[in-house]
Design a protein around this nucleic acid. Structure first.
Lengths: 232, 232
DNA sequence: CAGTGGTCTAGACCACTGC
DNA sequence: CAGTGGTCTAGACCACTGT
């Protein structure tokens, strides 16, 4: 673990342990330098990281302050990958509906930048939040990156498997979202009615070297999902 | 304008001028240092900025590459404030439905952290994208920060007025979103039917010193809105 | 193993806030 | 105007990629 990550984690924990609230003041940069015995630039980097994570905000000439915690029950969309990370108090499970290897459709080929006649892994899962239907997730994986996948692996956290076992380094993603009315099939899976609202998220994940390896389409149950994003 | 901002802008422009596409390679850090005659740390900061803006990605040991442009017509939600900034090719206008000074409701008081009996500016506008109804925007402004507002100002870009005239320094924001069915009143404003889907965004803006000054609720016309966010 | 990005340091100087 | 955060430099060393 890198120095600036350690210090950042330490400060995050300190905020929790001391029960600091939004607006509470943290030690100044020079104090933090002494506390952790690191250079100013490192502290500056640590604070930039914590600011990006919406843990703190920095006010020039004034100080460093704790930021709001998000409302409970809201899913932190767009911050971490695969949202299984938002564990605290809540429980995400999944049921596999379909798992197969198949020819990529034109849409999938375009999103994953594949050659003609490429095959991909297709995974369709129903995901639950605290036992309630959260969303339908349909994912396509580029087999040049995701070398192997089977039904057992797909039952668990696919991203953890990719990172830990296949050593896939996840770089960044493009996220598109919109709202439609549900069709009959999706409605029955989500335990809703045809015509009910549905929030769609399409996400394309890239490796750290820029190769797209996962194209996922999420359809959320509007009654069981609400989202949070920190803005700048 | 700061040095790292200038260099970042320059590199962005270079990408456009040279017509570089996703995956195209940019000069290495040491080359960029020479080109702009700045230190390595400055280039590193520039690249971090461009990476955050989803313009490039950096692959350790390999190089710096151009990232995808977003699909056209998608609104860059959560990146800039007030989305009036996504100008290119598209045209955002608004019609004021309501403008008044009034007592803050409990909800508004909580979001803006106001005392009892505080009054706020309430602004309700219909916003259009290329002439089509985009969303209903209801905003509440903290009068301690937003010292003055009138009907004329509210016709234009409120955020530009706050920044340029009132010298309000915008720091960060909390963004909450969810989906519901439309009620009759909102449906008629958006030229939709009661019961149609609606994407809601609640956003609380803070000054750079951490004071909440704007609580806005957006209700989008689901037929005319789709969104993009770069992910990490 | 050469080249590239990433971390970290010590220190100078600037810009802003709040008393 | 003291104290705080923000920018910028020059340079050392580390970690990874691609050939």
């Amino acid at each position: 673990m890198l120095k600036y990550e350690k210090v950042a984690l330490d400060i995050s924990n300190m905020i929790i342990e001391k029960g600091l609230k939004a607006g509470d003041k943290l030690p100044s940069i020079s104090e933090l330098m002494e506390m952790y015995d690191v250079s100013k630039s490192t502290i500056v980097k640590v604070l930039a990281l914590l600011e990006e994570e919406a843990v703190i905000y920095q006010a020039r000439g004034s100080g460093i302050y704790v930021r709001n915690k998000k409302r409970d029950g809201y899913i932190s969309l767009f911050t971490t990958q695969g949202f299984s990370t938002d564990l605290s108090n809540h429980n995400i499970t999944s049921k596999v509906i379909e798992f197969k290897e198949c020819l990529a459709t034109d849409d999938v080929k375009m999103q994953l930048k594949l050659e003609d006649n490429s095959t991909v892994y297709k995974v369709k899962r129903l995901r639950y939040l605290d036992g309630k239907t959260l969303c339908i997730e349909t994912s396509y994986f580029n087999k040049e990156i995701v070398l192997f996948l089977n039904k057992e692996l797909v039952e668990g956290s696919i991203f953890n498997y990719l990172k830990d076992n296949l050593k896939v380094k996840i770089g960044f993603s493009d996220i598109y979202s919109y709202v439609t009315k549900l069709n009959e099939k999706d409605a029955s899976l989500l335990e809703l009615e045809k015509g009910d609202p549905c929030y769609h998220v399409e996400q394309i994940f890239y490796t750290s070297t820029g190769i797209p390896f996962d194209y996922s389409h999420l359809k959320f149950n509007y009654l069981n999902s609400q989202f949070y994003t920190p803005g700048r």
